[in-house]
Write a protein that binds this DNA or RNA. Structure first.
Lengths: 203, 203
DNA sequence: GTCTATACGCCGATAGAC
DNA sequence: GTCTATCGGCGTATAGAC
């Protein structure tokens, strides 16, 4: 805790990150709590508690609650980029899409309790007056574009429309899974989507 | 959607309804404002203003905000019942389903601004601790069951799965239309669903 | 039945000690 | 950089006049 530990990690101190990584913890806590409770119901005290950071200290890292929301949206974007990056290790675009769907289905229990982590956030942000809904749209657009890229690689001329269809199917089955609290919906629809992708890849 | 609230209803004064129908106005205002702003962001003052009822007077009709939410969910259920009732005037189940989809597409501008009136409400209620999420599930279930009934009438043994697929498609395209603020998504996906229904009806 | 005035708690944000 | 104490505003709900 003292100045003595200063030298070691200093190599090229990431602008913000300090020992403890409180900022990172606050962002992660925001993503999680926003998902579980919704943005509007969540207080800064909730986030601080989950992040294990004193309430008042939050304001050293984020001047307003909105900035926390913005950071959460950015975190979703980063996660998406990381995910698609990993999927591109697979050589076959159809396999990438099926792996994407498979990942969604694996999260079915969480989806049944809290919905799609990003979809529910985007829906909520669209009803606020701040400009965060634009950032949310960007993330959604990035997902659709990546999916469209895969369909394009499969030689489908209607790649964009198919991408909208796939992402909409995911958002829709998330809403139903959530509202009806039934993870089996996710499983069944996931299987349907997988067959659908297969059919499109090998017509 | 807006059904009978016509004059001759005084015949046997409905328990609550008084001159002016303040209670009805409060419920209608709740449905509308919850849709446009979300439940959490909405204050009783907002509802009172839209309903043109003095703020303090709200509590004569509803003891808590939760009761207003409950009444709004009930109103959605009533609207759904009225809608499906009207659709059943059509002799062909496939026509009923296509008319259902057509109605959704007609609301695309509203969907782009505020999302599906019921889907966004259900999503929000699922993140509250009150028990209203169960009531929301009931309404969603009623819609799915009615759709399944139509597919059943078309002789499809997989009617229930098809119904989940159709309703999920609607919820999903609503989320995307809303997040991307693009009503064209609703139009395109609506056409796709219409063809899909045709294909299922005349294999 | 209708409406005003107000109590009360909670939450976002700030000031400033350390 | 870290944390405590606290302010100001708002929103739900109530008391009680008309």
């Amino acid at each position: 805790m003292t100045d003595s530990e200063a030298g070691a990690v200093r190599a090229e101190a990431p602008r913000r990150a300090r020992r403890g990584g409180k900022r990172e913890r606050l962002v992660e806590a925001s993503v999680r709590v926003f998902h579980e409770q919704g943005v509007e119901k969540t207080t800064l005290a909730d986030i601080a508690r989950v992040a294990d950071v004193p309430v008042g200290n939050v304001y050293y890292y984020f001047k307003t609650k909105d900035q926390l929301v913005e950071a959460a949206v950015q975190a979703h974007h980063d996660r998406l980029t990381a995910l698609t990056g990993r999927l591109e290790a697979l050589p076959d675009p159809a396999d990438r899409l099926k792996a994407l769907v498979g990942g969604w289905v694996e999260e079915r229990e969480t989806a049944a309790r809290f919905g799609c982590p990003f979809g529910t956030l985007a829906t909520e942000l669209d009803k606020r007056d701040d400009g965060l809904d634009l950032a949310a749209a960007e993330v959604m657009r990035a997902l659709i574009d990546w999916v469209a890229g895969q369909f394009g690689a499969l030689g489908r001329p209607d790649a964009q429309a198919l991408a909208v269809e796939l992402v909409a199917a995911y958002q829709g089955m998330s809403v139903l899974t959530h509202t009806l609290r039934d993870p089996a919906i996710m499983t069944a629809q996931g299987e349907r989507l997988t067959s659908w992708i297969d059919g499109l890849a090998h017509p």
